[in-house]
Design a protein around this nucleic acid. Structure first.
Length: 721
RNA sequence: GCCCGAGUGGCGGAAUUGGUAUACGCGCACGACUUAAAAUCGUGUCUCGCAAGGGAUGCGGGUUCGACCCCCGCCUCGGGCACCA
């Protein structure tokens, strides 16, 4: 299937004349390619993030530290909740060590809640699910129901790079729009972590707030239903049954239920439990409520109904007090209650596993005791199977392959974004079988100068690639901090009904058909001419004829070539203006106006009886990137032996576009009333003089007092009366 | 709800980023060529008005000699996020 599709795509690309260097083609499904995807995975697996050095470091060096002094003073991005000494570490068995290290590895195994889709028999990412008709979530593909389920997953610790991913945006030459999306997705917020002691207990509730200034107005504290503190406080809670029932309820609540209640906040009080406000020692009740998320901040919130809308809504519903207390300085109060100023991110770690056959195998194996080791010989190839359909269970089809399971190989496969997160590096050195990319090659190419892609990848591919690239930089493979220096986002060509082209709507335009009917050059010119590059536009088979006519008119223009005639200076002037315009427009990705300026040239040329060979050749050259086939043909007909596409790009001659007279518009009170033609060297005073004595202007001014005369160089005179 | 974009003829769009609004193309109308049609070429095509002139860049204000462009307040459409403390 892959081979057939590759052939189809290559044919389509070549039919419209796109000149790729096929010797650098890569195929992410080729074991010779994905052995390096697997290699990167293993590097991530064997790394942790050193928060002091602010880069990835080998897990071995972390293990060394553990052996020496435990993990109490480690500078690492982690989720480990256990504190141990070096001595204790040494006493742990292999499985225990593995479990602890999973909290540090950049690629790690974890039980996590996922979107399980029974219909597709697989787990879906958030951007693969959509809201269905009756408010229930369904898969984007097929529209099957989706529910939450906890399964064994592999994840990528992208959150370790949150700060670098955010800061790096500043230097990128991307559209501000995409940068904004990534910035919001990463979602940095700076606030305070403050501890509330629990009355009659050694436990504390740590909350995160961006409004420490409202600390005196706290009326209660809320825990997320998943909080393990609830278990710990079991002895104190007087309404255990009610609390248990509530938590059970929340857990069983699927997404659709949450939506059906229109997100009305629910919660239950922990009777008998009180938190002590560190600012004033007031005792406030503790609640459990589902509007607090376990996954963000500390999973606990201090409620200030006076200043927070959600808290107010909740307070109103459960008739809790709303008190007004004076505000204080955020930093001072945080320090006073021995809190900490911290930075939190909305972004979560990325799930890195699929329960599908198609995907790079994760190169890990598990021995009988459950200890995971890296596969030594890469690539680890997918086994040949007779059926690769989903198993219907929350595990990949590989779990049903006996030989695979016997070896202890991981049965999840990698997601689609694995191979696409680094492929541009492989372009630099596609056939290297010793390294991902050779040192010399990566030094030469560095990174991608100009990346063109869809804006829909803003929080997917474009973020993952940046993450991997930064990691590869840390381990010395990549040479730059960012993979894509400049980026332009092309708009999508929509169907003529203004919807996305889709088999579902039956509105797909097949490029092969268009090429067959109108020609490849016409298709190219039309797509460029339709409108701004970054704008999504509806396809119009009715309008494409204009581009075809343009091509034909250029072709007919060749009959006007006169080898003896000298260049016509008037036409030459238009030509040089066109060269200038086309040059600037290509630089700016303003292809639509480049084509319009070439149309203007053709309109002009048609008015002349002759056109010199040299002028015509220059015109063909600037048109060549847009209409490569026809221009090449004419180029050879004129007698050129080599390809037009390797000829030198024409430069415009500034001397040839100078006008000897300029047009000056004369306005009265900002309205255009006359037009003057003055010589190029006329002075400001001379032009004003001519304007004021112009017949039509005199009629408009009609003896009224002239308050001001404004002159804009080379453009206009405005007379204010 | 919050955050980004965008709104210009019948249609796709242009406008040197504060200086002649509607370039270029499609469509439409009329004409030339043709026995005829297609193709091609020519002319016209924002709107009201006989004209002189007036009015128009989603709506309402403002700044300015001058605003599609800048500022304030709305409306509509597209995209992103969504109980993020």
């Amino acid at each position: 299937a892959v081979d057939i599709n590759v052939k189809t795509f290559e044919k389509q690309l070549s039919i419209i004349g796109l000149s790729y260097d096929w010797s650098r083609r890569v195929n992410t499904t080729d074991p010779e390619y994905y052995r390096w995807t697997q290699w990167i995975f293993l590097q991530l697996f064997n790394s942790y993030y050193d928060t002091k050095k602010n880069k990835a470091e080998s897990i071995e060096s972390l293990v060394n530290t553990f052996e020496k002094s435990g993990n109490a003073k480690i500078n690492a991005h982690h989720t480990c909740k256990i504190i141990f000494t070096g001595k204790e570490w040494k006493s742990f068995d292999g499985l225990k060590k593995q479990e602890i290290l999973m909290n540090y590895r950049l690629a790690y195994e974890s039980e996590s809640e996922v979107n399980w889709c029974e219909g597709l028999g697989t787990v879906l990412a958030n951007d693969e699910i959509v809201d269905g008709k009756d408010g229930k979530t369904v898969s984007e593909r097929g529209g099957f129901p989706v529910e939450k389920m906890t399964i064994r997953q592999w994840s990528m610790r992208i959150t370790a790079y949150a700060d670098r991913l955010l800061k790096g945006l500043e230097k990128l030459e991307w559209s501000s729009h995409i940068k904004e999306i990534q910035k919001n997705w990463i979602g940095e917020s700076v606030g305070s972590e403050i501890e509330f002691k629990i009355k009659n207990s050694d436990d504390k509730i740590k909350v995160f707030t961006t409004r420490a200034d409202t600390l005196f107005g706290v009326t209660y504290v809320v825990l997320a239903p998943e909080s393990d503190l609830i278990e710990k406080l079991n002895d104190q809670i007087q309404n255990k049954k009610e609390v248990e029932k509530y938590i059970d309820n929340v857990k069983n609540k699927s997404d659709e239920d949450r939506k059906n209640t229109e997100k009305e906040k629910t919660g239950v009080i922990l009777e008998g439990v009180y938190a002590i406000n560190p600012a004033n020692n007031e005792e406030v009740p503790v609640w459990v409520a589902d509007y607090v998320l376990a996954s963000y901040g500390t999973g606990a919130v201090m409620a200030v109904p006076m200043h927070d809308e959600r808290d107010r809504e909740f307070s109103t519903k459960y008739e809790l007090p709303i008190i007004d207390r004076p505000l204080v300085d955020k930093n001072d109060i945080t320090e006073k209650v021995r809190g900490k100023i911290v930075t939190k991110y909305k972004m979560r770690d990325a799930i890195f596993a699929r329960q599908r056959y198609w995907g790079e195998p994760i190169p890990l194996k598990r021995d009988k005791d459950g200890v995971i080791t890296a596969v030594k010989k890469l690539p680890l190839e997918l086994p040949k199977v007779t059926s690769y359909e989903p198993t219907g269970k929350a595990e990949g089809p590989l779990a049903g392959v006996k030989t695979w399971v016997k070896e202890g190989y991981e049965t999840n496969t990698m997601p689609g974004w694995a191979g696409s997160s680094w492929y541009f590096l492989r372009y630099m050195d596609p056939k290297n079988n010793k390294n991902l990319v050779g040192e010399g090659e990566v030094d030469y190419w560095k990174n991608v100068d100009m990346y063109v892609g869809g804006a829909e990848h803003a929080t997917g591919h474009l973020l993952y690639s940046r993450f991997w690239h930064k990691f590869l930089k840390d381990i010395g493979v990549a040479k730059t901090e960012e993979p894509f220096k400049k980026m332009k986002n092309q708009g999508m060509i929509l169907a003529s009904d203004n919807r996305k082209m889709s088999k579902r709507w039956g509105n797909v335009i097949n490029p092969d058909e268009i090429v067959k009917t109108y020609g490849a050059d016409t298709l190219r010119v039309y797509e460029m001419f339709m409108g701004p590059f970054d704008q999504s536009l509806p396809w119009s088979t009715e309008s494409i004829i204009g581009s075809r006519r343009f091509i034909e008119r250029v072709y007919r223009l060749a009959s006007k070539i006169n080898k003896d005639k000298k260049t016509n200076s008037e036409l030459e002037k238009v030509l040089h203006k066109t060269i200038k315009k086309v040059n600037e427009d290509i630089e700016n990705f303003a292809f639509n106006t480049a084509i319009s300026s070439m149309m203007i040239f053709v309109n002009e040329a048609e008015k002349h009886e002759n056109i010199s060979v040299d002028d015509f050749k220059i015109f063909l050259q600037i048109l060549a990137p847009f209409a490569p086939h026809m221009t090449e043909e004419l180029w050879h007909e004129i007698g050129e032996k080599k390809s037009i596409h390797i000829s030198n790009w024409p430069k415009y001659n500034p001397k040839k576009i100078i006008e000897d007279t300029i047009k000056i518009v004369v306005q009265v009170n900002g309205k255009v009333r006359a037009e003057l033609s003055v010589s190029l060297d006329a002075t400001e005073d001379q032009i004003k003089e001519i304007a004021l004595n112009d017949k039509t202007i005199l009629a408009w001014v009609d003896g009224k007092e002239i308050k001001r005369v404004i002159y804009v160089k080379g453009r206009l005179v405005n007379i204010v009366i």
